[in-house]
Design a protein around this nucleic acid. Sequence first.
RNA 1: GUGGCUGUAGCUCAAUUGGUUAGAGCGUUGGAUUGUGGCUCCAAAGGUUGUGGGUUCGAUUCCCAUCAGCCACCCCA
Length: 446
Amino acid sequence: MTAPSIQPRTLKGFRDFLPDMMLVREALIDTARRVYRSFGFAPIDTPALELFEVLTGKGSEETDRQMYHFHDQGNRHVGLRFDLTVPLARFVAQHSTDLGMPFKRYHIATVWRGESPQAGRYREFMQCDFDTIGTTALTSDIETGLVIIDLLRAIGFDAFEVRVNNRKVLNGFLDKFGLADRSTAVLRAIDKLPKLGVETVSRELAEVARLEPQQITAVLDMAQLAGDANHILQRLEELTAGNELGERGCSELRTLYDAYERLGVAPLVRIDPSIARGLDYYTGTIFETFLSAKPEIGSVCSGGRYDNLAELFTREQLPGIGASLGLDRLLAAMELLEMLPKRKTPAQILVANFRAEDVPHYLRLAACLRRGGFNVEVFPDPKKLGAQFKFADRRSFEAVIVAGPDELQSGQVQVKWLSDSTQMLIDVGQEGERLVAELRAKLKSP
RNA sequence: GUGGCUGUAGCUCAAUUGGUUAGAGCGUUGGAUUGUGGCUCCAAAGGUUGUGGGUUCGAUUCCCAUCAGCCACCCCA
C-alpha cells in the first residue's frame, strides 16, 4: 500500500453532509415542496452555470465580487449562479410565451457566493424560492406572506415573526424629506439601529449620509416606530402625507395587514418600518422572517415585490413578487436550537440475518414489506443477534424482524419494537399481507 | 476583500514557568457460556498537537506564513 498523499478536506465555506444531516435536509426540502405546491407553484430548474453577462446583468459590484466565475474550455466567460432570481429573470424572458401569466414557480437549488463564511453563512447553500410573475395584484403580496407562514409552521416553528414593510413607504418618505438621492446610505444606516443604537446611527446619518438634524430626527422617528399595527400605520401615513408614492405604499401596507388580520395570522406579522435590506430591485412589499429563539442568525426567509423582473432580457414588463427560504441558515438555527432528530437511517424495519442459507427468505420478506410501503433493510451478515439489535438501536430503527428456523417453519416472524421492547409473533401470510397489515397498525409510512 | 479571536483523537476538553512514550469523557469497533438492543464491565482502533517554516539542546507551548472555524466591517439566506 502506498502512503496517502492527499489530505481529505473541503473548501472554505463548503461542507459535507452526513446521513443524519442529509435526512433532515431532504425532509425540509420535501416540506417546502409540499407547501409551495399547495399554493399552485410549479417546479422549474435552471443550469448552475450561466454566462457571466447573464448573471451580472442586474448585479452590483458586490455581487460581481462574490460570484464564482471563470473561462470555460471554450473560452466562454461563465459563472455559478449566486441566487435563483437572476436565472428566473432569464428563464421567464426566454420562455414567457410558453409559460402564460400569471406564472407561479418554485425553485429549490444550490447557489454559490464567495463571501466570508460565518455561522449560518456558507459559500455553497440551498435556496428555496417561490415567485409569482406577471401580476401586480396585492393578492399575490398577501399570498406570499401566507406561504412563508405555512412553510415555517409546516417545518415545526410556532414562534417566529414575519416583518413586513413597503419600499414605496420608505421611498415616499425619503422623497418627501428630500433624501431620495441618498436612500441607500440612509436605509443602510437605519438597518443597523437594533445593533448599534440611536447614537451611532445618528452619527452615521450625519457624517456618511450628510443629513440635516431635522432630517435625522424624522428618519429615526420613522425607523423606531413601535406599538400596535394601527398606530404604526397611522404614523407612517402622517409621515408620508402629501407624497403620492408614500401614500400609495401606506395604503398597500394597510390592505396587506388587514388581510392578515382577517385570516387570523396577524399575530405572526409585524409591520417594521426599519426593514429595508435585501436587493435593490424591490419596489413594493418586502418581507423578512426572524425566528424568535434565534433572531441573531438573521432572516431565514426574505422577499418582496419588484416592478420589472427581466428588463435586461426582454421588453415585456414582468412585475412579480416572491421570497426565498434560506434552507441552510434555517438548518443552522435548528441545529443550535437542538430541533433536529438524530436519525441515521431512512429505514424503519431491520430484518435480522439468522442464517446465511435463509438470506433469500429475508430478501423476499423485505420485498413484501417494501410493497406494503415500508423502508426495510436486511442485515447482510449472519452476525450474533445481539450485535444486530445493537446496530438497529444505534441507527434508530423502529422494529427488528427475526425470522429464525422455527418461525420460517411455521410461516411466522418475531417483530420486536425497539422503543418499548415489546415483541410479538405474527403470521406472515401468503404475500406478507398479514404482516403488512399488522405493521401498518403500529407504524406510519415513511 | 479588510481587521480581531481561535485551532490538541470523529465530538467536548486536559497536558505543571518550553522538558522524555500527549491524556480523559462521549462516540466508533470488538468482547463479557453462540435466539434479542438501550445499562454496566473489559479491550482495541484512532493524534508526525490544522499545515509549512523559524527560534531552541529540546516546541502542543514562543515567532512567521498559510489553511480552516468563529466574530466585526461589507453584504446577505
